[in-house]
Design a binder for these strands. Structure first.
Length: 648
DNA sequence: AGCACGCCGACT
DNA sequence: GTCGGCGTGCTC
């Protein structure tokens, strides 16, 4: 009879000790009683010093004959726990679905078939060779920098084949995989084995199958979203993070991890290579590449493909047609339709949102639980709060009680309406409201491809990797509101979005045109939009250095929330005092109401910490966390958002 | 996270 | 009188 520590998905703690008659190894799953429920957890090891003041209970069932999670995997969880100041139970809860943790092992078939080989071109071979030579030299990070369509995927496939041939496994991580399931088949055909995908929109059954096929079965390569990084396996040989700059890689829930950073950390722990890829890298990765920490591999523009002409239209000199289009963009759209070609229009939603206001007193309609304006969804005929998800059917003014409510601003719906009136044609509207499921989206894309629509107008979704041969015009209706956001990355995001939209036009034989409407044509993001022009990066790095922003400093946003405003405020000031006294040369901002100071009836205060190094940040937030636990009410919630991506 | 215990408001 | 609201604290 021995005592074993078991890691459980319990947010407030995580490690509990149990008695077991059978000999157990770290990494095996067990079912244990906790309070009056039963939970599945992972054995982390034997406990040789059980405490006399606790009556230990017995492990109920042993779910695995052999370990499923390796020692390195368990270490990885502890590292995430330390880095983000989240208990291991909270980490486990946030990275693995409960259903998978409780699942019974399955043995899904992984088919193999004759693979279709492709030879790499002269631009791909040097990159392949450089990375290939380091596949067996332990940990290294490679930043592959090249436009969409430059053939990055082909390079990764060849590298993956090499890793698989050595009996190791490959993780291929992409943002929003649920929107592009075709690539699963494309990869399979090229690899010669089934490649399964793993993401939250898959059915629990399919997720379990992929989990077991990768952990214990014959699945050699998994394609997945953020969560796929946490599929355990003993012999992972390569991790690829595509579109590494995507901010959707940052998890909003606990733990607030960034997939790219976790992939690099895991790669270091496993001592294997990690590939990051993007046409528009994050400033963080770019700086790591130019400083030599990461190897930079640039795929040059293909000389045989004409890059689109990019034109900036000064909207200050325009009288917008239909309230949205410059004369230039209107004429080009007209010409495009007449030539039987297609156009993609980007409508940047942020700051242009369809909020509601009261016609009698002018007040904006706010959510009753949160300090944000509600958003109006015309197609559904209701209002919704994007923070607490509350829906309101008959909005009323909170100030004067009037129900004479009107909409304000122009979202995708309004722009699409205006365009339909101008061109007397149906416009395909593409955004996360009009395309909620993959099937819906898939149908819309197909309808566009077959030429049923001439114009596709939508949010950032239209910029993401869609490839239509007949699209010759890309238009940006509005982009300026992206610059004004209270976020040091706003320029970087605008730049990345513009480069991506530009890449949508003229991808086949026809030359493309890009028209960008703006009120600030002198802004420098517009001047470096061409393929692998690094001018923006150089200028932006200087600005980041000058103003002390990442990648030159480490950042953490501390948010404290409580149902009583005073308690949240007090806690914030208390922590500020603690940090000031131990902070050394760290920059600690005076606490203030969070940008959204109330969410779901909890008041939020926050402050930002900047330090020179990660280890200094770890030291500070660990002190803060401990001090809060000892001196503050347990109902107070603290969140340490390290390397924050969003400031709203 | 769940789940129970416990202490205050309005109702079969 | 009790039903039920959610604040508080614990689970090996």
């Amino acid at each position: 009879m021995k005592y074993y520590d078991v890691m459980l998905p319990v947010p407030a703690g995580g490690i509990y000790t149990y008695i077991c008659e059978t000999e157990l190894k770290a990494g095996q799953r067990v079912e244990v009683p906790l309070g009056r429920r039963e939970l599945c957890g992972i054995v982390t090891g034997e406990n040789i010093e059980p405490r006399p003041d606790i009556t230990y209970r017995e492990i109920k069932t042993i779910k695995d004959d052999e370990p499923v999670f390796g020692e390195k995997y368990l270490k990885f969880i502890r590292m995430i726990s330390d880095y983000y100041c989240v208990e291991v139970g909270g980490v486990l809860n946030g990275i693995l679905s409960g259903a998978v943790l409780e699942s019974q092992r399955t043995n899904p078939e992984v088919k193999s078939f004759e693979r279709r080989d492709i030879t790499l071109n002269v631009h791909q071979i040097p990159v392949y060779d450089a990375i290939s030579s380091e596949l067996n030299s332990g940990f290294s990070v490679h930043l592959v920098y090249g436009v969409t369509g430059s053939g990055k995927t082909e390079i990764f496939i060849e590298l993956a084949k090499q890793v698989i041939a050595q009996g190791k496994k490959v993780m291929y991580l992409v943002p929003e995989i649920s929107l592009t399931p075709q690539i699963e088949n494309r990869l399979s055909a090229r690899i010669g084995f089934d490649v399964m995908s793993y993401h939250s929109k898959k059915t629990p059954k399919k997720r379990n199958d992929t989990f077991w096929a990768f952990a214990k079965g014959d699945l050699k390569m998994v394609l997945g979203a953020r969560s796929a990084l946490f599929l355990p396996s003993d012999d992972i040989g390569l991790i690829i993070v595509d579109e590494e700059h995507e901010s959707s890689y940052k998890q909003e829930d606990t733990p607030p991890y960034h997939l790219r950073d976790m992939a690099v950390l895991y790669g270091k722990l496993l001592d294997i290579p990690v590939i990051l890829a993007s046409a528009t890298p994050s400033l963080e990765s770019w700086q790591n590449a130019v400083s030599g920490r990461y190897r930079l591999h640039t795929i040059p523009c293909r000389p045989d493909t004409d890059m689109p002409d990019i034109e900036i239209v000064d909207m200050k000199k325009e009288e917008p047609i239909g309230g949205v289009l410059s004369e230039r963009l209107y004429n080009e759209l007209y010409k495009t339709i007449e030539n039987g070609e297609q156009a993609i229009l980007l409508i940047n939603r942020k700051g242009y949102s369809h909020t509601l206001y009261c016609r009698s007193c002018g007040e904006m309609i706010m959510c009753s639980n949160c300090s944000v304006a509600v958003t109006y969804y015309k197609s559904k005929g209701l209002c919704k709060c994007n923070y607490c998800s509350q829906e309101i059917r008959r909005p009323k003014c909170h100030k004067c009680g009037s129900d004479d409510i009107s909409e304000y601003g122009a979202g995708t719906e309004k722009v699409a309406e205006a365009l339909e009136n101008l061109f007397e044609k149906k416009i395909l509207r593409l955004d996360t409201e009009s395309a909620t499921t993959y099937n819906q989206l898939s149908k819309m894309l197909k309808d566009f491809e077959t030429g049923e629509y001439s114009i596709m107008a939508g949010t950032q979704l239209v910029a993401k990797g869609l490839d239509f041969a007949n699209v010759t015009l890309a238009g940006v209706i509005n982009i300026d509101n992206m610059f004004g956001l209270p976020d040091f990355r706003s320029k970087e995001r605008a730049y990345q979005l513009l480069v991506q939209v530009s890449g949508r036009a003229g991808r086949a034989s026809k030359k493309g045109r890009v028209i960008i409407q703006t009120n600030a044509p002198e802004t420098d993001v517009f001047t470096h939009l061409n393929c692998t022009d690094t001018g923006f990066y150089e200028a932006e790095l200087i600005r980041r250095k000058l103003f002390n922003y990442p990648p030159f400093v480490k950042m953490c946003r501390v948010t404290l929330s409580h149902t009583k405003e005073e308690t949240a405020k007090e806690a914030a000031h208390y922590i500020y005092g603690v940090l000031k006294s131990v902070g050394g040369d760290a920059e600690i901002f005076y606490p203030a109401q969070a940008p959204v100071y109330k969410i779901s009836n909890r008041y939020r205060y926050g402050m930002v910490i900047k330090t020179k190094t990660n280890s200094e940040m770890s030291r500070l937030i660990n002190i803060a966390s401990k001090s809060l636990k000892e001196n503050m009410k347990s109902t107070l919630r603290v969140r340490f958002d390290r390397d924050p991506q969003f400031f709203m």
